[in-house]
Design a protein around this nucleic acid. Structure first.
Lengths: 210, 210
DNA sequence: TCTATTATTGATCAAACGATCAACAAGCTG
DNA sequence: CAGCTTGTTGATCGTTTGATCAATAATAGA
C-alpha cells in the first residue's frame, strides 16, 4: 500500500495525455516547487512511465519552462480580471498592491524565485521568465498610464515606474517567504512609498473596502 | 593539458586546509552560484580529492550555508563601513540605496536568490539566510532610527520600514538580474518612494557627490 | 631515529537525474 | 475479423551528486 501500484495506464489521445502531463507538472510545481518537476515525479503523478512523459516533451527544460508560464500566466489573468472591475486608476492600483501582497500566493512566489535561479541554467525558462515579467509590466504600466491621463498620477516614465513597482512587490514577497513572521504587515508601508513615486497625497492609496 | 593533473597535494594543517576549502567554496559560489558548490567542484579548486573536502565538512548543506554567510556577511561589513563614514542619517540612507542599487554586486544578488530557493531544501542554509537578513535589517534600522531621532525621518515603526526597504532593494536587484536592459535606471524611482515612506520632501535623498 | 598520529587518497556505494529504444498491445481502419 | 498505426512500457545507459572507509604517507613527538 506504500507504493500505489500502477496497473496498466489506459491508452488516451495525444492531446488528452499531453494535457494530463502539463497539469501534473503544474501540480508538482505548486506543491513542491519547480525543482521537483522531474521526469519521474511528473510520471508518477500522471500514473505512467517516465518514458511516456519524455515522449510527450522535447526535454525537461521545455516542460519546466512551460509549467512556469502556465502558473504565472494564470495568476496574471486572474489578477488582471480582478482589478479590471475597478473604475478609477487609483482604485485599480490600490487593489493591485493589496492583492499581490496579501500573502495568499506564496506558492507562486516560490515559483518566481526558483525561476530566477533556475533560469541561469535553463535558457528556455529564462526566456519564459522574461516574457512573463514583461506581461506583468504591461498590465501595471497600463494602470499607471491611465492614472497619468486622468491626472491622478504624476510621472514622466510609466514603464520605469511599472518595473520598480513590480520589483518592490516581488522583493517583499520573496522576503516574506523566508521571514514569515511579519507576513501580516507585508507591504504595509508600500502604499506611502508608491504615493511618493506617483506624487500622490498621503493615504491616497488606502485600501478600498470590499 | 585539458585536465590539470593533480600531483600529490601537500599535507597542511587542518586550520589551513579548512580555510582553503572555505575560500574555494566562496570562489565557486561567486563565479558559478551556490548550486555549483559541490563536493567535487570545491575539491578540484583546492586541488584535492572530494573525500578530503567531505573530511573537513560535516556535509554539503553546512558548507553551502557557511559559504552563503561568508559572502553575504562580507558584503554587509563592506557596505556598513562605507555608509558609516557619512555624517547625517539622510546621507547614510542615500548612500546605502545608491550603493546597493549600483549594479556592481550582481554576483551577490545571485547568491541571495539561489539561497531563497535552496533554503527550502537546506535547513542550515535557511537558518543562515534568516540570520543574514536580520543583520541587514539591523543596519538599515539603525539608520532609520537615527534619522527619526534627528528629526529627518518620520515613522513610528523603523523595523518595519527597514524590512520594506530591504525587500524593495532585493526585488529590484533580482529583477535587474533577469531584465538587465534597464540596469542603468535600476532604482531610479526608489528615491521618491523612500521619501514617501519617510515623510521627506521630494529630492531630499538625491545622491550626494563623491 | 623510531613511533604514533593524522592528513590524504583511491575505490566504491547508492540515489537521482535525463534520455533512448526495441518491444508490446490497444484501438482504428479497411 | 485482420492488419496497420501508435500510445505505452520495461530495461537500460551515462552522468552527477553526497557519502563512507580502509589504506597510505607525511608530520610531530619521544
Amino acid at each position: 500500500m506504500s507504493t500505489p501500484v500502477r496497473k496498466k495506464a489506459a491508452r488516451k489521445s495525444p492531446a488528452e495525455r499531453s494535457a494530463e502531463v502539463a497539469a501534473a507538472a503544474r501540480d508538482v510545481a505548486i506543491e513542491h516547487g519547480l525543482y521537483a518537476v522531474t521526469l519521474r515525479s511528473v510520471a508518477a503523478r500522471v500514473g505512467v512511465t517516465p518514458a511516456l512523459v519524455a515522449h510527450y516533451e522535447p526535454n525537461m527544460d521545455a516542460l519546466i519552462a512551460s509549467t512556469f508560464s502556465a502558473i504565472v500566466g494564470a495568476e496574471l489573468t486572474e489578477v488582471g480580471e480582478l482589478i479590471a472591475r475597478r473604475d478609477t486608476p487609483r482604485e485599480r492600483l490600490s487593489l493591485l498592491l493589496a492583492t499581490l501582497l496579501d500573502g495568499m500566493r506564496d506558492d507562486v512566489t516560490v515559483i518566481w524565485v526558483e525561476a530566477w535561479a533556475l533560469g541561469r541554467r535553463n535558457e528556455a525558462l529564462a526566456r519564459a521568465v522574461r516574457e512573463e515579467m514583461d506581461d506583468w509590466r504591461t498590465v501595471v504600466q497600463d494602470v499607471v498610464v491611465a492614472g497619468v491621463a486622468s491626472g491622478d498620477f504624476e510621472t514622466d516614465d510609466p514603464a520605469s515606474v511599472a518595473w520598480q513597482l513590480l520589483g518592490m512587490i516581488d522583493g517583499l514577497n520573496a522576503h516574506a517567504l523566508v521571514h514569515w513572521e511579519d507576513s501580516g504587515h507585508r507591504g504595509s508601508r508600500l502604499g506611502s512609498a508608491v504615493e511618493g513615486m506617483l506624487g500622490l497625497p498621503r493615504g491616497a492609496l488606502a485600501v478600498p473596502a470590499g
